[in-house]
Amino acid sequence: MSLWEYANPKKFLTTSERIMPFVWAVSLACLAVGLIWGFFFTPDDYKQGSTVKIIYLHVPAALMAINAWLMMLVASLIWLIRRHHVSALAARAAAPVGAVMTLIALVTGAIWGQPMWGTWWEWDPRLTSFLILFLFYLGYIALWEAIDNPDTAADLTSVLCLVGSVFAVLSRYAVNFWNQGLHQGASVMRVGAVTGSDTAEKVSNVFFYPLLTCIVGFVLLFVALVLYRTGTEIRARRIKALLARERIAS
């Protein structure tokens, strides 16, 4: 029993179909609980008022925007090295989801920034690098759409994903250098704060637990969406193959 068995499309489909209902259910339950808990049963922040509650959408979406690209990077590497079609299709399936997550993070950030920073948009390093990440997603999706031959498309987009990752990280540090930030630093996950050895500022537990629930919900939502979309891609590929076979036969 090895992990690579799931590279077989059939095995992948049956397994993913078996686990998908649970992933969907847990994800939606976490999201419902986390969002309702966060929106209605947490106190307002003493400084930010009720606007602080957008954190329950903003932070998980931003987290998944980066992790989706990371997942595409791993899937691209697997495709380039071991040539498993499911892997390439999973990378393709994840791209639009990641792009939407990036968009959610940008839009919720803008909505929060308007009352808090007094501006919808600011050329802050984090905001700028997220915008650049969004452009990378767009280019990646556009390249997939533009190429007819599926294997060529998978190869080219995989290389683009690798090169793009390097440049995305480079851009992240370049914009850091270019402009000092307005965005607050990481305050959700602090190793020191969790172990209690550090008195640094950290999100209070009142906000942290619903936020954690939302993050779990978003992660599972992403997994469910990618599994679902990969399944769709596999089936679309099969239909294409069947049609081609029929055309040859007739």
Partner: peptide
Amino acid sequence: LLVLPLYV
């Protein structure tokens, strides 16, 4: 679209 983000 592909090259401009790489130029950043």
